[in-house]
Amino acid sequence: MNRVAIPLDIAPPAARLRGATVVEFGGPTMGVSWRVKAVAPPGFDLAKVQARVQAALNAVVAQMSPWEPGSDISRFNGAPAGAWMDLPDAFQHVLHRALRWAEVSGGAFDPAIGRLVDLWGFGPPGPVEAPPSDSAIIAALAAGGWDRLAHDGRRIFQPGGLALDLSGIAKGFGVDEVSAVLTRLGLVDHLVEIGGELRGEGLKPDGEPWWAEIAAPPGLALPGGPILAALHGLSVATSGDYRRVLEHDGRRYAHTLDPRTGRPVEAGLRSVSVIAATCMDADALCTALGVLGPDDGARFAAAQEVAAHLLVEDEGGLREIISPALAALLD
């Protein structure tokens, strides 16, 4: 039987939904794809909407993708020590939120781990054949760290060798941006998905909310049964130890790195899902909880009132941790 998470403020369907139809469209972005389902009003111009969405996502990539040599983040990462750099508004917004979660999580989420990400083969330079040496990890830790990043609101300061990596939050921000574009264009009832991260607004024509299932790793099922979340003004993001790995000498190293140790996490967490008001926050919180691990992560989720689902594999098999905020949605 499905477990269902429903926000308390879900509203009845509006008159605009009567007789409306749902359209689907999408495109490429951030190495994955984006997809939209939207309730189409009269006069809907698919080509215009699709172009506006793609332009918004292209702007996110141009600002925050380290895979783009000319992006704002790449220019900062390559800037000499002592350089100040002006930031576009969207970049400022994302970085401000990233630094907030870095501070609150005690550095479990850190937007300044670009050197570590590259060192382990998960960044733009490409895969590596073996784990890095202890000395290389120590050097990358010394060069990074969110607390080395000085900023004055509109500008950030390059202290020398610091590399930003916003992959733990930029995709979620992209989802939020697409949702905002659709709303401005009159498509107020919609579901947005980028690489498995979703945001829903409004309702479907039948009065049902946009449903999303809390994802389990391939080949596994949640011990308590599937969880369906009603994305009515909500977002959901999921991260797991199965998505990208480094394999060496029969050992698998997960792509989630602990910024405090410089090494992949080994906490037994198979997946983490977060439901939040914005996809940007859901994205960042998934990373933070994955780094904190089952025990500290559960305490953090409870203290921060985060609606989170943690799937843990230990000696007793699979078990799930449901935070109090998620349990309230399931009641």
Rank of each mutant, 00 (worst) to 15 (best):
S273M: 13
R155K: 04
G144K: 03
P41W: 04
W211S: 00
R16H: 09
G31C: 05
V306H: 09
L164R: 01
L292K: 10
R75H: 12
L310V: 08
V291A: 05
A221E: 14
A139M: 10
G19K: 09
F44G: 05
V61Y: 05
D283G: 04
V245K: 14
A180P: 00
L17W: 01
A15I: 02
E201H: 10
T238A: 02
L318A: 06
G70T: 14
A5F: 14
E177P: 00
L182N: 01
R270I: 04
V178Y: 04
L99I: 05
K171C: 06
G225A: 07
V60F: 00
L182V: 03
N77K: 08
V36P: 05
D241G: 08
I10C: 10
P66D: 10
P132V: 12
A325W: 04
A47N: 12
D241N: 07
P125G: 14
E313Q: 08
V49L: 13
G224I: 01
G317C: 13
A276R: 03
D45R: 12
A229P: 02
E313S: 04
A56V: 11
G240Q: 06
A308K: 06
V39A: 01
R263G: 01
L162Q: 04
R100Q: 15
R100D: 14
T256L: 09
P41G: 03
F173T: 01
C279Q: 00
L220Y: 15
I137S: 04
G200C: 05
P294H: 14
G207K: 06
A51W: 08
R252L: 12
G174N: 06
R251M: 13
V306G: 09
L57T: 03
S65E: 12
P226F: 07
L257N: 02
V53K: 00
W101R: 08
G121H: 04
H232W: 02
R243D: 13
L46C: 10
A254P: 09
R244N: 12
E313P: 02
W146K: 02
R199F: 05
I156T: 00
Q63L: 04
V245L: 15
